[in-house]
Design a protein around this nucleic acid. Structure first.
Length: 260
DNA sequence: ATGCCGTTTCGTAAACGA
């Protein structure tokens, strides 16, 4: 089963790009972030024509996540527990049956958190604490699950071309990176780093200043897996060529292959 | 580099993003 995550940066503006990539890569599951539209405006028909079932947790203008699946979508739940007042659409869980077992997939858009020193950064850190609490709960079931999405976290200096430019950025703060490590230290695995331990791999290139052309990127889109999911993991790749297409998202897809 | 570009909206300027 191929499971993908992609921050699409506006699904309406990116629909032709999305359809092109889905036809090319044919993932079984695709988690989307920053769809930037509400449920009613989501372009569901075009995606259903490609054989996908849909689960959408939209928001007008900003944020918004969705999951596309060629297999049935079971037990769809929206929102990250721990803050009833949080109105941002950033988190959804689905359960997808495979040929031999099932996998729970969380599609997440973790807050950016900039600028540091503001309530936006506090919101990010609190959101990460809530994600860790949720992962801790899921681990008790001892089943395969994946946290897939735009984490807005640069885990280590290997994950950024020019770390000196990010020392005052929320994505690279010690508090941010410490919380990502805390999440992994529960017993989870950063799947890209497991299978590509020493490679400089990026998933985002800024639109500005020729960042793509100069390969000035960062790795912030991740698939964090439970032990039972890692046991089924055979490969994971980044489709970076998509960044070179016309009218691209500034992020590219991350695709994992699991024997589920 | 106080967003250089791109998407979105109770729009044509401002919010947001990373």
């Amino acid at each position: 089963m191929q499971i993908a995550t992609w921050n699409i940066n506006g699904v309406k503006a990116r629909l032709s790009n999305l359809l092109r990539w889905l036809k090319e890569a044919t993932p079984d599951v695709c988690c989307l972030q920053e769809i930037k539209c509400d449920d009613e405006a989501f372009p569901g028909e075009a995606l259903e024509e490609l054989g996908y079932n849909l689960a959408v947790h939209g928001q007008k203008g900003f944020n918004g996540v969705a999951v596309l699946s060629k297999r049935p979508l079971e037990d769809v739940t929206r929102r990250l527990p721990g803050a009833d007042t949080d109105q941002h659409s950033r988190y959804m869980e689905v359960v997808v049956p495979g040929d031999r077992s099932v996998v729970r997939i969380a599609c997440l858009y973790l807050p950016n958190g900039n600028p540091i020193g503001t309530d936006k950064f506090e919101y990010k850190l609190d959101w990460m604490d809530r994600l860790t609490a949720r992962a801790s709960e899921l681990l008790k079931d001892e089943e395969a699950f994946i946290l897939a999405g735009d984490f807005n976290v640069i885990p280590t200096p290997l994950d950024v071309k020019r770390p000196e430019l990010w020392v005052n950025d929320a994505l690279f703060q010690p508090e941010t990176r410490a919380r990502f490590r805390t999440l992994l230290n529960l017993g989870l695995t950063d799947a890209v780093r497991l299978l590509h331990p020493d490679e400089a791999i990026y998933t985002f290139w800024d639109y500005q200043a020729g960042a793509w052309q100069r390969n000035i990127g960062i790795r912030i889109d991740h698939q964090v897996m439970s032990p039972q999911a890692v046991d089924r993991l055979s490969a994971i790749r980044i489709d970076k060529h998509v960044r070179g297409w016309d009218k691209p998202s500034d992020h590219v897809p991350v695709i994992a292959e699991l024997d589920i």
